[in-house]
Amino acid sequence: MEAVVDNLDLLLEGFLRTLTLTALAATGALCLGTLVAAMRVSPLLPLRWAGTCYVESVRNTPLTVVFALAVFGLPKAGLGLTFFQFALLALTLYTGTFVAEAVRSGVNSVAPGQSEAARTLGMSFPQTLGLVILPQAFRNVIPPLASVFIALLKNSSIASAFGVAEATSRMGSLIEDNPSAVLWLLAAVALGYVVLALAASLLLSRLERSLAVAR
């Protein structure tokens, strides 16, 4: 118990890093995923094909392999980044595929009458997508996106194995220093993740309610 209290500042610092990593990767994955989803529903065949290739290959690769490829592979391609940047890149690329799938199924869940009406009014494809379909799709997509981002929060713990001093990595080194407090440390860090996940899901369900429209 003392080990947790005494090192609370270290653990909190770790969680701050976890949060930073998660927030940045979530932003990146949201942009990337939306772009890829738009590519996959567009009439442009090469873009659809490229989007499908990216989603199907990265989604079926374990995140740890994506991490290993980034951390050990990219320096060989002459790309030297910090461990944090590599972790951010790997998490963004991996989570982007799940965001793309969530947004795509959101787009497909918008009633066909909506796009038909937009087309009838003479809107172009980008207008139909940007002004009519995506605003509605994002509303439908918030619950699955919430799950994707909570998974991202948990997945960020893998960065601990690749040199990022986030919460799980801090826990690992604290356990080495205080082996007798192992259960307390594990419980404290698990509790931290549960609290963060709960906070995120509360926040997103409030957002969902505030964006909900009467239909």
Partner: peptide
């Protein structure tokens, strides 16, 4: 709810690091 919200890596560590000590 607890095990769904905990990172899997933490659970693996729990068995790997805690069982020898506890």
């Amino acid at each position: 709810e607890f095990f769904r919200a905990t990172p899997l890596l933490l659970l693996i560590f729990a068995f790997f690091l805690a069982t020898p000590i506890v």
